[in-house]
Design a protein around this nucleic acid. Structure first.
Lengths: 333, 333
DNA sequence: GATAAAAATGTAAACGCTTACAAAATGTAA
DNA sequence: TTACATTTTGTAAGCGTTTACATTTTTATC
């Protein structure tokens, strides 16, 4: 069944049917109703391919996410999808993994699918590593690119960030003021966002006049058990620390596990702060004090920014949203 | 740039270029190489819409998932996406939520996008509620429908399940044999899969000669805190129970929280078993004993079954995969 | 009622590909 | 060499829309 069947049954031309489908103004209401009725009766659905051929768009946004089983990313994907849909867009999802070449392939694929824009969540793009980002820049020359918690300077790249630097800075200051003089910062990727957090931590240490040795900051795997092991071995090697600030909740949970194993009382002897305020935070025992980076707001903002970009508006390339420290049992700040 | 540009530059007809694109056998290797070289040089990518118009397919599978932020579903989506990609298929993701009418709309949308098949993960379809499932049946008349952990009898619906009934039955028996004579079963949706688990629990009780009062089974919200509250109020109302079998890990974590609040020693005085062996299981303290339903295998099997279906093979409508009880701190079985 | 302007509708040409069928080139056997 | 089968290539007709432009109908003005 196609537009001809509808036009015939409705006694109008295909152009008129097309106009009705596309909500064009130049159709008399009598005609419109008749056509709509026929479409309903026949159960007609326009062929997306033919439509795409004519319009060269399919109202689809490509979402790239390294790993949709990460709770933060999964949440973001969920809210993005929801909000895109609300705005009449569909989404292609790609779970790219963390490898550069794979990401490049996925990106090519999305572009070949003629997506109207690309949203990248949990990107690893570093301002520094220009050459690794070139492919993203190339993409931005074709379609708008939205970065969630990532930053790349380009007129067609729009970034939505929560102020990771400030969040960690403030959190660390509060930890220190609460008496934890030897905090340790754990992170598990060299993403833009992670590096922001790192700087926040370092700056808070120096602002407080505390020593900030290289060992007060540690790159580890995004895994509860491995984080625990790492902390045990650090302790074994004589490192002294009385608190852990994790760049992800999973790392913080690892720290909680470590403290339990060492018999340290939380939060009296040992404090832990996480990041994302994910479901892990309330699962942990004691529950995690964690920074809530408002993933829903982040997603909603990204989508609404994108809609404005697609609408041809002039839009700032960087939007920062708020976050907040949620205090629970692992650190009474 | 289109196929004409390539054909002209390569000095062949567009039909030949098309044959090269589609890997047709009837092209001399000399010609093929020349065309490929030109495509490479021009950076040519076939237009998916035109392609779709001709072939009436875009090599895309629709994935419907109620809530991609649920860890189990998120994992499934991740593995599905990965495996589809490996097989040359792309995926449209829809996060449908749990409401029937919304699901129906999403389904319509996917069909209108001309997906080649639909994968439904964490479906709520109950064999009983025929009329609620009619729309799925309608879809199955158009394209193959894959159900993960769901069941619906239809020649074009293919179900991949882990044996939830047996898993819970066996787990419950082991709980009882370990001395917990008053287990409570918690579940949070009336999905096919949940009801299977429920039966397994009930049958295990009666097989053990234990009473199975109505209150030994309880429907609750999929939320840690609410589950804890529920258990507290049950206890307050005089219900006696010494173990909880949760149909989801989150419910089990709620039970762990309950036990802590009540000062019950786990697992000596109170045992907990979860389901899915998700990240929550290792986050909990003590870590959850949980049934691992092998989400990766479930996803891989679903995709490979789908590939066989799309390849025109005769495929059984029901595939059951194994699961296993992972014993950790909340129940030493 | 005639005329001009505005609104509604129709015609036909894209859009970029696939593929049935026709034609040409090549290979094989006598 | 010829006759015929096989492989390779080309031609042209779709696929189902959108939309510029042409045409017809309606409305407004005098």
């Amino acid at each position: 069944m196609n537009i001809y069947d509808v036009s015939e049954k409705a006694g109008v031309s295909i152009a008129t049917v097309s106009r009705v489908i596309n909500g064009s103004a130049n159709v008399s209401s009598k005609t419109r109703e008749k056509v709509l009725a026929v479409m309903e009766e026949l159960g007609y659905t326009p062929n997306v391919f033919a439509r795409g051929l004519g319009l060269n768009t399919m109202n689809t946004i490509g979402i790239m996410c390294a790993d949709s089983s990460d709770p933060f990313l999964a949440n973001a994907v969920y809210y993005l999808e929801q909000n895109l849909r609300k705005n009449g867009y569909d989404s292609f999802l790609c779970c790219t993994g963390y490898e550069l070449s794979t990401k490049q392939n996925y990106l090519k694929l999305l572009l070949s699918k003629r997506v109207d824009a690309i949203i990248l969540v949990g990107s690893n793009f570093l301002e520094a590593a220009k050459k690794d980002n070139q492919y993203m820049i190339d993409a931005a020359n074709e379609v708008p690119v939205m970065l969630i918690n990532g930053y790349l300077a380009h007129p067609n790249i729009y970034c939505t960030l929560c102020d990771d630097y400030q969040a960690v800075y403030d959190g660390t200051i509060r930890l220190i003021e609460a008496g934890y003089r030897r905090p340790l910062f754990l992170y598990c990727s060299r993403s833009y966002s992670a590096l922001q957090k790192l700087s926040g931590f370092r700056d808070a240490l120096s602002a407080s006049g505390l020593p900030a040795p290289e060992e007060s900051v540690c790159l580890c795997a995004n895994d509860i058990a491995q984080t625990k092991e790492l902390l045990c071995s650090l302790k074994g090697r004589g490192l002294v620390f009385d608190a852990v600030f994790g760049a992800e909740d999973s790392l913080a949970v690892g720290a909680v596990k470590y403290a339990r194993e060492q018999g340290l009382r939380i939060p009296e002897e040992f404090a832990v702060v996480g990041y994302n305020n994910s479901m892990l935070a309330v699962c942990s025992e004691p529950e995690l004090t964690s920074i809530d980076n408002h993933v829903e707001t982040l997603s909603i903002t990204t989508v609404s920014t994108l809609m404005r970009v697609l609408g041809g508006n002039d839009v700032p390339n960087k939007t920062t949203i708020s976050n907040e420290l949620v205090v629970r049992g692992t650190a009474r700040l």
